[in-house]
Design a protein around this nucleic acid. Structure first.
Lengths: 350, 350
DNA sequence: TGTTAGCACTCATTAGAAGCGAGTGCTAAA
DNA sequence: TTTAGCACTCGCTTCTAATGAGTGCTAACA
């Protein structure tokens, strides 16, 4: 049933059953579960004393913990991990949940950004946890068209449109001595030669292939080269879309201000969040407590689901909640929601 | 000293002085101030009993409140209002504060967005309150250049560049029957005729002046008209830049979760925030407690300062904190910070 | 008449004590 | 192997008493 990595030996059927019942109960009521509570269930035929013995064993094995000497048991991180990996009832979305994720699809959403935003909102509404959608990195998209529009003698706006319709723009300083005709030629060359190249690769492609072309066509190549570097200096900025940022405040385990504060601060820190929520794996992944490798997240679990476009992983939708989460419900929800997002995204590009 | 609107008669010098001392003390220590505390100050020569009489009078006049029958006094909303309007020591920025706002100016900031973001961060760092910068409404900016870039046979991206270098873009559905040549002509006409017109006015200008031109040059005018409406359907979206979103959590008056929650939720609600922070007045304004006209803000004050470009009010920088704020410091800070922003912005457009 | 000392009173806050109850571990018997 | 029984632990709630910072009022004083 379980591999040896879960302690010295295998767990008995009864232990597995008790463990599952206990975690289910704890997830539902968020209170330490005692032997009596378990024995009172219809499907349990043993007395509290017997249960107690089993619980003591499960605690020794590290699946359970006590909050104090005479308290009931709560699942440990290891317990949750085991629960998620081995005890989760087979996944299936309940019909009425499915309705809600279809709600997403019936609304007319034109732009991807709106889709991401809505998905995050729906997910957090449905779960009362905090959700985050990590948008696709525009720099991984392919160049469709670029343009430079002068604002004044010194300043201009550079615009890059990707195949997905995303627009990147930035203001740039024009070199003093630049020739208007050179600028025009530059833009033309870039558009002719680099359409279909990923934004992030533009620079290296230019280095490799186009310096000769530039030298030939542009009068002041030296000057232009510096300018090009400025033009194509990307700062990566994936977009994050949040839902239910303050939902953590209503979770009983975070009723304490000193405990929520680090959490909320974490949520506001872009790069930490990007790291937390980035995932290269396809499908749904679950990270529990300290697996998230950040102090502020030690009492949280993060469920991550990737969405794709043309089969390629381009972003994630995630849920952040207390380690005691309704894993079953939440995982299936994320699974269907991410599929839905994938569908919608691929509809766009038709 | 004070007009009659402040109660039945004027306040005596002593009352004014006591009121000021009390509010200063309360702002500093955030605890009800008693008669003994006040009388212990060097510059106060009266006994606690005398002070008590004055305090009772000030309370009758509505400037002070008690938290319970035998507690010290705290300022009422009216008290704060009076304090801000009449008792604030003349404004002057202390030298070391000035250094910090100059910090802003020494860094090289190219784009307005970065400037706004930095300003908000600096302000919240300096005050430990929450700050918000309301960015300029791009729709009030003037059209510099527009363009339509096709993505597929049906979809395209429309791009509008303003005189300030801001780029507005949106994805649009191309009419089935559209002629490529018509599209090109349309864009040309718009660029020729409407450069310099504020984005928000584009539509009405077209209605008024250009329908004849369109009818003349475009083959399928009917179809095009619907398309134009879609193209120029602006949804106003001023940008908000936040600093110190979670700072409220460290304010003693919001130590209670049930009190912070509405506040944080309020901060996350775009339209409420836009309304709160929008101001048509120039200079610094102070709104105290219920003057902000929202339940969640009833224990907060909002200090608002506008910044300008070419003398025109285009946005605000605001600070949200508890009603007990260091008004003096905060007002002068906002004053100098908004000036600094104005300077920087006008430097951009040189 | 304005000021102040004195005093009774109020009320939030804190600490301690007592009782309750949900839970445990251990032992011995079925 | 299971279970009944029992002593014990510990968190939580309730109650009480003590503390102290503050008030309002009165009466005396300058």
């Amino acid at each position: 049933m379980s591999a040896n990595k879960w302690g010295d030996g295998m767990l008995s059927e009864r232990q597995l059953y008790i463990l599952r019942v206990l975690i289910d109960d704890y997830i539902k009521h968020v209170e330490p579960v005692g032997s009596r509570t378990i024995s009172k269930r219809e499907d349990i035929t043993y007395s509290p004393a017997t249960i107690r013995n089993e619980l003591a064993d499960l605690e020794d094995l590290g699946f359970l913990e006590k909050t104090h000497t005479s308290s009931g048991r709560i699942p440990s991180e290891k317990g949750y991990r085991f629960y998620v990996d081995h005890l989760l009832p087979s996944l299936s979305v309940s019909p009425n949940e499915m309705d809600r994720t279809e709600l997403l699809s019936t609304e007319k959403v034109q732009e991807a950004e709106v889709l991401f935003d809505q998905s995050a909102k729906i997910l957090s509404d449905l779960t009362n946890y905090t959700s985050v959608v990590l948008g696709p990195n525009a720099l991984d998209m392919k160049l469709r068209h670029m343009q430079i529009i002068p604002l004044s003698s010194q300043m201009a706006v550079a615009i890059f449109v990707t195949n997905t319709g995303h627009v990147e723009n930035r203001q740039i300083v024009l070199p003093n001595s630049i020739e208007p005709s050179d600028l025009e030629k530059l833009v033309n060359i870039l558009n002719e030669r680099l359409a279909g190249v990923r934004l992030i690769e533009l620079n290296s492609r230019i280095q490799m292939e186009l310096s000769a072309v530039f030298k030939k066509h542009l009068k002041d190549y030296q000057n232009m080269s510096v300018f090009l570097d400025q033009l194509l200096l990307w700062s990566k900025k994936e977009k994050l879309f949040y839902g239910g940022k303050t939902n953590m405040l209503s979770q009983p385990e975070f009723r304490d201000l000193d405990k929520v504060r680090p959490l909320l601060d974490f949520l506001e820190t872009r790069d930490l969040m990007e790291k937390l929520v980035s995932s290269t794996e396809k499908g749904v992944t679950v990270k529990i407590g300290t697996e998230n490798e950040h102090e502020a997240m030690k009492n949280c679990s993060v469920i991550n689901a990737s969405y794709t476009m043309h089969g390629k992983h381009i972003g994630t939708i995630s849920l952040i909640g207390p380690t005691r989460m309704e894993y079953k419900r939440v995982i299936s929800l994320l699974d269907s929601l991410s599929r839905e997002m994938t569908n919608r995204l691929n509809d766009f590009s038709k």
